[in-house]
Nucleic acid binder design. Structure first.
Lengths: 339, 339
DNA sequence: TTGAAAGCGCTAACAA
DNA sequence: TTGTTAGCGCTTTCAA
């Protein structure tokens, strides 16, 4: 890689001081029109662009914010990112995205790298492994130096972080209520292990709705998917005995929902006649499938916007407010063909 | 935001020189065990982490590479990114992703920012607007200073850039051949405007297959979607007169394919009996839909891996080879229910 | 074994 | 109007 052109190079080439070049590039009126012209002409000729590292190191400000997500294949995260990007660009900020791959060590490294000069603020959705380990030091360190940090969707429990989340309990409740209203009585849930808060909360909503309706909980209808094993096989367990088939399934994410639908087709169950299905997602799959899926909308875009707004407040108000901010994005049910 | 701890702070606090602290942190054997212990203890206590901006400015190396994509909602790009990330982490590199939003100015700004110190190499899929404007100066500048730069999928035509692409002509050819083999004769294509090379090349493959089969081209069956207008309305034009319905549709991306399927259902056409459908994608939608879609697989993950490999060669071999590298990822047809 | 000092590329206060 | 200089926080060579 050829050496980059620097201010020094330009200055010596033109026989002026570095600061003169720097000022000329900023169109400072300290510099004469003629000198400016000479400098600009040469700068143009050699395609000079300033070293951002040096600029940012000097200014202690980067005008970029970082977003860490577990992965990108979940459409939901890409929606959140769109929302973040949308607000960020309104504020004149750029964003850079990094992936934790749901991995603690990766998340730690990226967090440390980005937060040490690369960015002015950080938006994070917690890695699964971090939730399991419950080791949040890389974040508490940031918090203790008041680095602007906002979580979205997945967050470290038990510490007072700023976050924007959806009301997962309410979402689970809405989904289950809907199924009950459609006369389902044996309602299964496909959920995550308990340490994933979003899954667990949706399950709480599910339990609440059943309890309210006076339907007793059948633990055999609660499937906690272990993603390290075959997901279809785990779903199939719901349908091991015909007499005990559920008449409805609430899946806490789009993937489980689409796999459940596939399973239903395999067994020649008609949806929604024999089996009603509700998913939980912002994704395109739900709309595209047939029958299209009734889902709880997560409003990822709005979540991203809101997260960026809170982060912006933190960046600008420095440490004026020390109060934790929790923003809850409402969910709502979108009824489609699967119920 | 509280001031960050620096080496200077640690040094003055412990009454040693900055360089001593720096060396101690690197476990240099120039420093006595005892001094190291004192320093490490304090560093631990105050949670010191080095300023990456300063480190990278000094080292002129960042161990991170940048990826610029138009957007994330296309599942294809997220697959490519997974591939990039996979290889990058094997090489010990981190990645940061930025979005051009298919916008020239945004792409220019991000490219300039990232390439000026933030990253050691850049992977880009060209913004649509950049393709239209055909203004590639932000990239030719990088090339003239031999900055490691590799394009994937979408690239600037007419300049000798390193790139990894799929054989779009071949893909279009495979898709169309398949439809012909299934006895389709009035085969429509839903493609992009001509300046989008991927769409145009797929169309060339389509024309080639038709020509070979001795089927004359009916221009009314070629729909170039203008995304600024309603896409469903444009697709609907194919079905304006019953006597002239196509018997097959080749859609150059997943979105057009799923919308075509929706249109078919609206008109009560049976797929594949009345209308056969082939898409072009890596996405999950094709699999999840019913009928599931026959598609040309793009192998995004492999594309990402390959792009990263080439970039790595460029980073490491400096400017030993000046030859342009073009890597072509083969496509293949995956037959599903829609044909 | 430790420290001083130059320098990475830039900005900005201050001098000339 | 232009130039000098002191940093931003770090690494690394050379002296002590």
């Amino acid at each position: 890689m050829a050496k980059k052109i620097t201010l020094r190079h330009i200055a010596t080439h033109l026989g002026v001081a570095i600061s003169t070049v720097s000022k000329a590039l900023k169109d400072s009126d300290e510099i004469s029109a003629e000198t400016k012209k000479r400098i600009l002409a040469y700068v143009e000729e050699v395609h000079y662009t300033p070293n951002r590292l040096a600029v940012n190191l000097q200014k202690q400000r980067t005008m970029t914010i970082g977003v860490i997500v577990p992965e990108l294949v979940h459409h939901f995260f890409t929606k959140v990112i769109s929302g973040v990007e949308n607000r960020a660009s309104q504020y004149g900020y750029h964003i850079v995205i990094s992936l934790s791959k749901d991995n603690w060590e990766t998340e730690r490294q990226i967090t440390e790298m980005l937060s040490n000069g690369y960015i002015d603020g950080l938006l994070v959705s917690l890695a699964k492994e971090t939730a399991e380990k419950a080791d949040f030091r890389h974040f508490t360190n940031l918090m203790s130096r008041k680095f602007p940090l906002v979580f979205f969707d997945r967050f470290p429990p038990g510490i007072p972080v700023d976050k924007v989340i959806i009301d997962d309990v309410e979402g689970g409740y809405q989904a289950t209520r809907h199924l009950i209203a459609k006369d389902a009585r044996r309602i299964a849930i496909l959920t995550t292990p308990k340490h994933i808060s979003v899954g667990f909360d949706r399950e709480r909503g599910y339990r609440k709705a059943l309890a309210e309706a006076g339907i007793s909980i059948d633990e055999s209808l609660i499937i906690r998917i272990d993603e390290r094993q075959s997901i279809p096989a785990q779903i199939a367990r719901l349908f091991s005995q015909k007499a005990y088939y559920p008449d409805a399934v609430f899946a806490v994410n789009e993937q489980y929902a689409s796999l459940a639908l596939k399973q239903a087709k395999l067994l020649d169950l008609r949806v929604p006649e024999d089996l009603k299905l509700v998913g939980f997602t912002d994704g395109v799959i739900s709309k595209a499938m047939s029958p299209s899926l009734t889902t709880i909308a997560q409003h990822g875009f709005e979540m991203g916007e809101r997260a960026m707004e809170i982060l912006m407040d933190r960046i600008e108000n420095k440490d004026m407010f020390d109060k934790q901010i929790i923003s809850i994005i409402p969910t709502n049910l979108i009824e489609r063909e699967s119920t």
